[in-house]
Design a protein around this nucleic acid. Structure first.
Lengths: 218, 218
DNA sequence: ATACATATGTTCTAATTTAGTTCTTTGAGT
DNA sequence: ACTCAAAGAACTAAATTAGAACATATGTAT
């Protein structure tokens, strides 16, 4: 009946309307679903109107009304809720999943606070941690594969030889082994197909040190 | 349905009407919402009339009537649900760590029931799991390194190409990729320095399938 | 009753902020 | 190559706010 996104949006509207008395704006809905643009909300709302779940006054702000709720949840939502029930154990710690990071060519490293992964507390020490999803194969010879999740301990300095999240020129974040060479810094991939890159230390910021790695098969 | 301002005004009208018996003047509403001009009140009232929440007698003083209120969950329930969301703490999942397993030459695979590791429940599906510590480097090209911890799902059959815990001749357990070749079974290391070994299927028992991998640095 | 005072509601303009719509581009997954 | 969801930007409309002028009741004093 409804797609998972439609269902999530409908429930969000229903929930906030009942809790706050007024209905959410496009931007609030955008945030709630983890989208970065509100044009998608528009499409989802149209779909919900078409299916008779909500009514809207066009061109009015915050003028939505939930007419009915679906009897059936999309199965993916059910699965998600079940997973969540199992989830967070007493000892577990949740850390934010900040996005993907290049092991090959640099890519995004953007926080989407909605995504979290939970870990047993004993995998972490003191300090702040976050997780990144590896994209690319530049660290393959260090046993870090495309799709792996790495747990990063926040830090702004590192030891020679550590594998770190390095931000170059405040724009590209990448996971590499770091070595200092005089006033320069070497970012060393672990894949013969990639070149070590050298930067003046001023252009490179350490954003964290590789603490652990999690891989899921299948 | 309503904007926050509209909602605040509606609730103010409702409250003062109930408490004082007569409804507030424009100036009183203006004060209540912290505005400096009452023209805004007029606009808000128009919006509330348009949405059917109030009725007004034009040009009459203090002549408003609240027709309906947005349905709200009792705040006690809202608070309760919020508390529940935070609580989500369920059970820690502990799985036994059975010992070390050869990735190189076969070694021990002895259960030491005292050792356990805890995992976030969402890393596991249904079924039974156990953990092994990798010793050796025969799977290094599959990103499985010496010292890694692998999570194994108990199973006695596997798909072609799965990485499995294989017990050979009831004596040596090893982690390898498995392939069937007629009545034989191939145990394939992922390291050029090691040879694929071939056994009659009767000599090899699958004891589990690789499900995930955890590595800790430092 | 007339005139005035007071309290209150209505309208208008205008500036600013917030919100909704639409269209084009991008990127991932067939 | 095709499709679809999402991102992004540009645009339009609505909401909010203020200030002032104006209108309409109602009561009071003459």
């Amino acid at each position: 009946m409804l797609t998972p996104k439609q269902y999530r949006l409908l429930m969000f509207i229903h929930k906030t309307t009942r809790e706050t008395g007024c209905c959410p704006s496009f931007d609030e809905m955008k945030e709630a679903l983890g989208l970065k643009s509100k044009s998608g909300i528009h499409a989802l709302l149209d779909a919900l109107v078409e299916r008779g779940f909500i009514r809207k006054l066009p061109h009015k702000a915050r003028a939505l009304e939930v007419l009915k709720l679906p009897k059936l949840k999309p199965s993916s939502i059910v699965a998600e809720e079940k997973a969540k029930e199992k989830l967070v154990a007493a000892n577990d710690v949740e850390i934010p999943l900040y996005g993907k990071i290049a092991a090959g060519t640099p890519i995004e490293a953007i926080a989407n606070e909605t995504d979290k992964i939970s870990l047993p507390a004993d995998m972490l020490g003191n300090g702040e941690y976050y997780a990144l999803k590896i994209e690319g194969d530049s660290m393959i010879e260090a046993g870090i594969l495309n799709g792996d999740t790495v747990i990063i301990k926040k830090a702004d300095t590192a030891q020679n030889g550590d594998i770190v999240v390095a931000l170059v020129d405040n724009s590209e974040a990448t996971l590499k082994q770091i070595k200092k060479d005089g006033t320069d810094v070497l970012l060393i991939p672990k894949n013969e197909a990639y070149e070590t890159r050298r930067f003046p230390a001023t252009r490179v910021k350490v954003q964290g040190i590789l603490s652990s790695l999690i891989r899921t098969y299948h």
